[in-house]
Design a protein around this nucleic acid. Structure first.
Length: 143
DNA sequence: TCTGTTATTGCGC
DNA sequence: GCGCAATAACAGA
């Protein structure tokens, strides 16, 4: 049974689509969406009460070419960041590819792509860089 | 297939 | 500082 729901986060709403303990998709919207609630783990994380999300991402189940990159990214500890280049080194690929992988990531938060920043800056984020900034400052506060 | 587009990096000027 | 090539993956034509 797949459920969808949203919860507010700053100026945005985090829309979560999940099935039991597997997150199918997470996206950001400017208005609330869906009837159901989102998993408590997500809400606790977004409010700073929880430092990890014990849920699986569909990306780990599927056999996609970015899986190695996603696994490495998900190992980044709460409140810390890594440059694209370092992820690339571990994944034996290149920084540009890591950027592409993050862009294709349909489950942010579960795959903490906001913790991946550019070498001397913050890097980018879709759909809005402000979300990345908010997430990072949230983690910095509760670190 | 081929072209354009990346959430990058590092080197040369 | 700025421009640009390297470089891998994807979408659209």
């Amino acid at each position: 049974m797949i459920k969808t729901g949203s919860t507010p986060f700053g100026l945005w709403h985090v829309v979560v689509k999940w099935n039991e303990s597997v997150i199918m998709q997470i996206r950001f919207s400017k208005k609330p969406e869906g009837e159901d609630q989102v998993p408590n783990e997500i809400k606790q994380y977004l409010s700073g009460k929880r430092k990890n999300i014990p849920l699986k991402s569909i990306l780990f189940e599927e056999d996609n070419s970015f899986q190695i990159i996603y696994r490495i990214v998900s190992k980044i500890p709460y409140g810390e960041t890594r440059p694209y280049g370092e992820i690339a080194k571990d994944a034996k690929t290149h920084a540009r590819v890591v950027g592409t992988a993050m862009r294709q990531n349909i489950t942010p938060l579960i795959i903490p792509c906001h913790r991946v920043v550019s070498k001397d800056g913050i890097g980018g984020f879709t759909p809005d860089l402000q979300i990345k900034i908010d997430l990072l400052s949230l983690e910095q506060r509760n670190k």
